[in-house]
């Protein structure tokens, strides 16, 4: 086992057996993510990108093989423990932003800190600080329906990084954005990676995202077809 790894997958297989025909989404995938990486899991639709991201993010457990987060076997954790791991160690950026519609941008960013039990004044300060750093301080008191898709996704990034997680997983983060907005979002994430050492793992088939990845894992039919490092 790699002692530096944040997350490590070993011969991971995932079979979805909830339909008429079992679907094998992953076939013996192994990979290691180390601190400071800016990795893109690329591949066509149905290649298993999201499934792999779900397993790395403790949202799901493999059918076979093991996933370790900071050396801890995720299969050994209860649902509650996995939720706690996600809360404190992992940030998520979803394709559809998934901000809480009744909360303002500031409150959305604060929400993770609220779940962590951070005192109100402290979480407000930290949330505002992150929004300012990401250049969207002026959106603090706007609700999601008052923001553009790009703005919402920036707020989602702020929410993902505000608790300083060990790993940020971004599932197709630019899929719903136009190319200009997508570029800006990627600039932002790259900046967070470079200046603050935030570790990012993307799943995407967007060439803009693939182009930025310093490490590329090409997935096809549930297997890592090739790996590139820049």
């Amino acid at each position: 086992m790699n002692p530096n790894a944040i997350v490590q997958a070993e011969q991971v297989t995932k079979i979805y057996d909830d339909g008429a025909v079992p679907v094998q989404a992953l076939r013996g995938v192994s990979l290691t993510i180390e601190p400071g990486e800016f990795t893109v899991i690329a591949g066509p639709s149905g290649s298993g990108k999201t499934t792999l991201l779900n397993l790395l993010g403790a949202l799901d457990v493999p059918t076979d093989g093991r996933v370790f987060f900071e050396g801890q076997d995720l299969a050994m954790l209860s649902r509650r423990e996995r939720a706690r791991l996600r809360l404190y160690k992992i940030g998520f950026v979803f394709q559809a932003y998934n901000l809480i519609p009744v909360l303002t941008a500031l409150e959305n960013v604060e929400f993770v800190l609220l779940l962590q039990g951070v005192p109100e004044r402290e979480r407000r300060r930290r949330a505002l600080e992150v929004l300012e750093q990401l250049g969207i301080g002026e959106l603090a008191h706007k609700r999601p329906h008052e923001m553009s898709g790009g703005q919402q996704q920036r707020v989602a990034v702020a929410r993902a990084v505000v608790s300083r997680p060990r790993l940020v997983l971004a599932d197709e983060p630019t899929a719903n954005l136009d190319s200009t907005t997508g570029v800006r979002l990627l600039d932002l994430m790259e900046q967070l990676n470079r200046e603050q050492g935030v570790t990012f793992v993307f799943s995407s088939h967007d060439p803009q995202v693939i182009e930025r990845g310093r490490r590329l894992l090409w997935l096809r039919d549930g297997r890592i077809e090739r790996e590139e490092r820049k």
């Binding site: 509650r80 706690r84 996600r86 998934n98 993770v112 779940l115």
Partner: peptide, 15 residues
């Protein structure tokens, strides 16, 4: 779906 997202963010079942 929103509850699923909250769970993904780490919200416990109790909360």
């Amino acid at each position: 779906p929103e509850f699923g997202v909250l769970r993904a963010l780490g919200m416990s079942e109790g909360r």
